[in-house]
């Protein structure tokens, strides 16, 4: 499994990856989309967001994501609370 861009997040990231990989191959591809790794993802993302702020990457990413590559594929139904302020244009 790959490292996180923030060194301190690699451990939790790999835990999350393990959970996701298992979910993807054993559940999602078999038709069961019930979330299974939300708690790990939340912890991982908390660590990651700190790193992105430290590296001043947060605004760069926010700008890049304004341009939605998949306009037909659902509105962004992000489950994470920290994303609720993102604006759609």
């Amino acid at each position: 499994m790959s490292s996180s861009i923030g060194e301190k997040c690699t451990k939790i990231k790999q835990e999350y990856d393990g959970c996701f990989n298992n979910w993807y191959s054993e559940k999602f591809l078999k038709g069961d989309a019930t979330p299974q790794c939300d708690d790990l993802f939340f912890k991982y993302k908390e660590c990651l967001m700190q790193t992105l702020e430290e590296k001043k990457l947060d605004t760069l990413i926010a700008d890049a994501r304004k341009d939605n590559p998949f306009p037909n594929a659902s509105s962004s139904s992000s489950s994470s609370k920290s994303e609720s302020s993102s604006k759609k244009e």
Binding site: S2, F41, S74, S76, E83
Partner: peptide
């Protein structure tokens, strides 16, 4: 050097 997941969700409708 690194790869991170920023967001991930399943659309309940589709």
């Amino acid at each position: 050097l690194g790869c991170d997941v920023l967001d991930r969700s399943v659309d309940p409708a589709t």
